[in-house]
Computed example of a mutant assay.
Amino acid sequence: MTSAANRSIAFRLGRALGTLARFCVHDRNPSLRWVKRVVVFSLIVVLLANSISWIISSMLTVGCFVLGIYAFSKVDLDQVDFFAEDKDAPYGRDVFGTPLNFWGKREDGLDLEDN
C-alpha cells in the first residue's frame, strides 16, 4: 500500500482528528469518557460563541435570498404593467392622484406650493 505511506496534510489532519475522536469516545471508565466529551463540547461552544453573529447573519442572508426568490416566482408578469402609459396623465401624477403638466405642476389649478 504505497498510497498510505504518503504523509500529506490531509492525511495528517485526518489522523489527528481521528485520534482526538477516539480519545473522547473510547475509554474504559464511563465517567471519565463523559468528562472528556463535556470538555470537547465546551471548547466547541466557546469557539462558536465568538462567531455567532457571523453565523446568524449568514443564515439571515440566505433566508432573505430564499424569500426573495420565492416572492419573485409567485409574481404573474402577465398582469403587471411596469411601463403602462397613463393616457389621462402623460407626465405622471402627484401623491394625491392629480395629473401633472410637463413642469410637474398640478393641472387643476390647485397647486399646493403657491400658498
Rank of each mutant, 00 (worst) to 15 (best):
T2Q: 14
T2R: 13
S3G: 04
A4I: 08
A5R: 15
N6E: 15
R7C: 12
S8A: 12
S8T: 15
A10K: 11
A10I: 10
F11R: 13
F11H: 12
R12K: 15
G14F: 07
A16G: 06
A16Y: 09
A16D: 11
A16M: 12
L17S: 10
L17K: 01
L20A: 14
R22G: 07
F23N: 08
V25D: 09
V25M: 08
D27W: 05
N29C: 06
S31I: 14
L32E: 08
L32Q: 09
R33D: 01
R33K: 15
W34F: 14
V35G: 02
V35H: 05
V38K: 13
V38G: 02
V39C: 04
V40P: 01
V40G: 01
V40S: 03
F41A: 15
F41T: 13
S42P: 03
S42D: 06
L43Y: 04
L43F: 07
I44P: 02
V45C: 09
V46F: 06
V46A: 08
L47H: 03
L47M: 06
L47Y: 04
L48G: 05
S51P: 01
S53P: 00
S53N: 05
S53W: 01
S53I: 01
W54K: 10
I55A: 04
I55V: 07
S57W: 00
S58M: 05
M59W: 06
T61S: 10
T61W: 05
G63N: 08
F65H: 10
L67S: 08
L67D: 01
L67F: 08
I69P: 03
Y70S: 12
Y70V: 10
F72K: 11
K74A: 11
K74F: 02
V75C: 07
D76I: 03
D78Q: 15
V80H: 08
D81H: 14
F82T: 12
F83L: 15
F83K: 04
A84K: 08
A84M: 11
E85K: 11
D88N: 13
D88G: 07
P90H: 05
Y91V: 01
G92H: 00
R93E: 09
V95S: 15
V95F: 13
F96C: 04
F96A: 15
G97H: 01
T98P: 00
L100F: 05
F102A: 10
F102Q: 10
W103R: 03
W103F: 09
G104F: 02
G104D: 10
K105M: 12
K105G: 06
K105V: 07
R106P: 03
R106I: 04
R106G: 02
R106H: 04
D108G: 02
G109N: 04
L110N: 14
L112Q: 12
E113T: 14
D114F: 10
D114S: 13
